[in-house]
Simulated scan of single mutants.
Amino acid sequence: MNKTLRVLLASVIAVSASAAMASDNWQNGDGALNWKNGDGTLCWRDNNWTPATAAKGCDGALVPAAPAGVSQSKITLQADTLYDFDKATLKPEGKTTLDKIAADLSKIKLEVIIAVGNTDSIGTDAYNMTLGQRRAQSVKAYLVSKGVDGSRIYAESKGKSNPVASNATPEGRAKNRRTDIEVVGTAAK
């Protein structure tokens, strides 16, 4: 990965991470140290790790702010416009939203897109991780079909581990069935 992409990816992490960020990197018993590989350059991490949950000093140190000229935005695509229950097939309303995103991407020099599929709490952890991945992949495939460079799009799943609403009601579960998209790029010159 080239240095520019690392810096921009680190910027996505810094901007999207909260102050009390939970890490999915493996840590020692008291959480003071992250486990690292033999030469100390990479941290060990679990299967829930994403760039947004990277720990400081791991996988490209977090930086305090985005470099000048870098544009970053996070978009949440809700299930009511994107997917039917238990599906990863894009609905027409979701395609319309992605068409607008693809058009907006032509105005920047795209560095990276991170698509994270999420599910409600119905079903097993394993099933929901797979469904979330299929949802993120459907967004990636659609954007690629619209001319976006697929090598710049990372698709991953959080399954049911990242709810934004209560899973106790149908409305809350619907809000949790979504795909979050982070876009990073520089202003076109």
Rank of each mutant, 00 (worst) to 15 (best):
S145V: 07
K100P: 02
T89W: 00
L110I: 11
G94I: 02
N128G: 04
Y142N: 08
L110T: 08
P92W: 00
I108L: 13
T124Q: 06
V139A: 09
K140C: 04
A103L: 11
N118I: 10
A141D: 14
P92H: 02
V112F: 14
E111H: 14
T130Q: 14
G94W: 05
K107P: 10
A102S: 15
K91S: 09
K140D: 02
T96G: 13
G150V: 03
A126W: 03
A136H: 03
A126R: 13
I122Q: 11
T97F: 09
K109M: 06
G117Q: 05
L105N: 07
A102K: 12
A88Y: 01
T130S: 13
S151W: 05
I108T: 08
I108D: 01
V148H: 01
N118E: 14
G117V: 08
E93L: 03
K91Y: 11
G117W: 01
S138G: 02
L105E: 02
A103D: 13
T124D: 10
A88K: 00
T97D: 05
K95G: 08
A115T: 06
S138Y: 00
Q137A: 10
S106T: 15
S106V: 10
K107V: 11
S151C: 07
Q133K: 14
I101C: 07
R135N: 01
A141S: 15
E111P: 07
K146P: 11
V144C: 03
S138F: 00
Q137N: 12
I114S: 06
A136L: 05
K146N: 09
D120N: 15
M129N: 11
A136Y: 00
V148R: 02
E93I: 00
G94L: 04
S121D: 14
G150F: 00
V148C: 03
S138Q: 00
A88Q: 02
A141V: 10
G94C: 08
K109V: 09
I114G: 03
G150W: 00
I113Y: 05
V144G: 03
S121C: 13
A103F: 05
I108W: 01
S145A: 13
L131R: 15
T124I: 05
K146W: 07
T119M: 11
A126N: 12
G150K: 05
I114E: 03
I114H: 09
L98F: 02
G94F: 08
M129Y: 04
T89H: 01
G147Y: 08
T130M: 10
M129S: 06
K95P: 10
T130H: 06
V139C: 07
T130K: 14
R134I: 00
D99W: 06
M129C: 01
V139I: 09
A136P: 04
